[in-house]
């Protein structure tokens, strides 16, 4: 599971984070997931699993990964909303302004 988590976290984080900070963000995101209350941790594992095996997220180019995230972000039904939120939460909570790509 750890390697799936890392792959998905990397593939999402690289959309926002400058390369030198990627490992920091991934480590922090991982430890955040591990500290989530048990129900949410399991749900997050499940969502990461689906993201990797259903969408092959980590094999997508950055452009295609972004297009997928933007499509999921537009979800107007509840399961889609929960899916995209839990996918993003660990990374978003680990972001700092100076890590962001545009702050170069």
């Amino acid at each position: 599971m750890n390697s799936i988590l890392k792959k998905v976290l990397f593939s999402y984080a690289r959309l926002h984070v400058q390369p030198p900070y990627l490992s920091t963000v991934i480590d922090q995101s991982l430890s955040r997931i591990r500290s989530f209350p048990i129900q949410y941790r399991l749900l997050t594992y499940f969502i990461f699993f689906i993201t990797e095996f259903f969408y092959r997220f980590s094999t997508l180019s950055e452009k295609k990964a972004l297009a997928l995230i933007l499509r999921l972000q537009q979800a107007s039904h509840l399961p889609g909303r929960i899916f995209i939120s839990l996918l993003k939460i660990p990374v978003l909570l680990s972001l700092k302004k100076e890590y962001l790509k545009g702050s170069l």
Binding site: K88, L93, S94, L100
Partner: peptide
């Protein structure tokens, strides 16, 4: 900002 980002209905360049 980290907490606001959770409730911003955006991603990609707009979120950044």
């Amino acid at each position: 900002p980290q907490l606001a980002s959770l409730v911003l209905p955006l991603d990609g360049k707009s979120l950044d």
